[in-house]
Every structure is written in structure tokens, then in C-alpha cells.
């Protein structure tokens, strides 16, 4: 029988990255509704961000046509345009609303993730008894959040952009789409997606660190 000390070289426990991804993915699938609740807040916040930013892109496109009627239509639609303005830009009020919505979303995600992690204390304790390191647990939670973030944020960003386009078509007609710079739209959607993923990761970090640091006994004592 080999003693612990003699085996120095083989004393590593591992969790290959592909296996972590597999476990996290299955974990999301099995807890679909729990994951959905965490993700929906994100979808809403990200789609709002995307809606506003794509709206700005559309307005910029309209403005760039130089058509005075379109300029009037934009002002009637609520954009504050000075005579010399060539881009719409977002108003401070709009920026505040976006920041607030993202903050509310972050708090919602932290809340949902804290509950999700608490529900899984026993699972975490068990994994640690089987030899999991703190960082395995951390990695599993971060991966789950990243996948949820990617899915939720891309759905939200695309949906927000889409509604923004529909909205513009209804208010300004087809010229809104004709005058539009599609690369700007793609950038706005991408930006909203990235913000969403970051939010999701930021939201899971604190709960995941708490979970990862737990001693196996503490984690398993929790009644469930």
C-alpha cells in the first residue's frame, strides 16, 4: 500500500475542462426552470439595452439622410435634436434608466444564484468529499453562469434589436431600414450580449465563492 507521502507525483485531483462543461450543461438542463428564472431577468435587461441602442442606430441612420422631414419626425418621436446635431446620442436620462435596469438585473441574478447555490449545498459538500477542490466548484458555477449568460444575453439582445426595428418601421416606414447601418446594429447587439454575459458572471461570483469555500461538513449539515 502506498502512503500519501510516497505518491508525491500523483497527488493531484483533476477535473478536465471538457468534463466541467459537460457537468455544468447537464446541471442547467436538469434544473431547467430554476435556470430559466435566473435567465429571464437577464433577457429582459439585455433586451432593453439592445432596444435602446439599436433605436439610436436607426435614428442616426435617419439623420444621416439629411432629410428635413425625417428630422422633424425624429423630434416628434421624442429625440432632443439641436439644429447642428448630426448624431442622436443618448440622453443622460436614458443612460440612467439603462444603468438602473442593469443594476436591478444584477441584484436579481445575485438573488436567484444565492438561492440556487443554497439549494445545492449538499451536492457541493458531497463533491468535496469525493475529492473536489474549491476551484472545481467555483468553475462549475461560473461555467453555468456563462452558459446561462450567453443564452439569455443573446436571446435578449436579438429580441431587443428586433423590436427596435419593428418599432422604427411602424413609426418611420421602410426608410428607417433603408437608411440603417447594419454594422452599427450588429455592434449594438454584440455589445448588449457582452454586457449581459458580464452581468451574469458578476452575479454568480459572490454566491459561487461562498459555495466553493465551504467545508464539506458545513455544507452537508444543511437540512434539505
Amino acid at each position: 500500500m502506498s502512503s500519501i507521502e510516497k505518491d508525491g507525483v500523483n497527488r493531484l485531483v483533476v477535473l478536465p475542462f471538457a468534463k466541467s462543461v459537460e457537468i455544468s450543461f447537464k446541471s442547467i438542463r436538469v434544473r431547467f426552470f430554476r435556470s430559466l428564472i435566473t435567465t429571464i431577468t437577464l433577457v429582459l435587461a439585455v433586451s432593453f439595452l439592445s432596444f435602446v441602442n439599436v433605436g439610436t442606430d436607426i435614428a442616426d441612420g435617419l439623420l444621416a439622410t439629411g432629410d428635413i422631414n425625417l428630422r422633424q419626425a425624429l423630434i416628434r418621436a421624442g429625440y432632443d435634436l439641436e439644429a447642428q446635431d448630426t448624431a442622436v446620442g443618448s440622453s443622460p436620462k436614458q443612460r440612467w434608466i439603462i444603468i438602473l435596469s442593469l443594476l436591478v438585473c444584477a441584484v436579481g441574478i445575485i438573488n436567484a444564484q444565492l438561492m440556487a447555490v443554497t439549494e445545492r449545498f449538499r451536492e457541493i459538500g458531497t463533491m468535496k468529499c469525493l475529492g473536489a477542490l474549491d476551484r472545481f466548484v467555483l468553475r462549475l458555477f461560473v461555467l453555468e453562469a456563462a452558459m446561462q449568460g450567453l443564452a439569455g444575453a443573446s436571446i435578449g439582445a436579438v429580441a431587443g434589436g428586433f423590436f427596435s426595428l419593428v418599432n422604427a418601421l411602424l413609426s418611420f416606414g421602410t426608410v428607417a431600414v433603408a437608411a440603417l447601418s447594419w454594422s452599427d446594429v450588429a455592434l449594438s447587439v454584440l455589445y448588449a450580449t457582452l454586457v449581459g454575459i458580464l452581468l451574469s458572471l458578476a452575479g454568480v461570483l459572490y454566491p459561487a465563492i461562498v459555495a466553493a469555500k465551504m467545508q464539506p461538513v458545513e455544507a452537508m449539515r444543511v437540512e434539505q
Partner: peptide, 21 residues
């Protein structure tokens, strides 16, 4: 962690299987 993984096998009163697996 290595000790828990390789040297010792644990069995609990409440089974403690990972429910999602």
C-alpha cells in the same frame, strides 16, 4: 482532496448521491 478522493470512500446515512446525475 487527494486523500478524500483516493484513500477514503464515504457512505452516509442519507446516501448523498448527486441528484442531477
Amino acid at each position: 482532496a487527494w486523500l478524500r478522493c483516493r484513500k477514503i470512500g464515504y457512505i452516509f446515512q442519507t446516501f448523498n448521491l448527486i441528484q442531477v446525475m
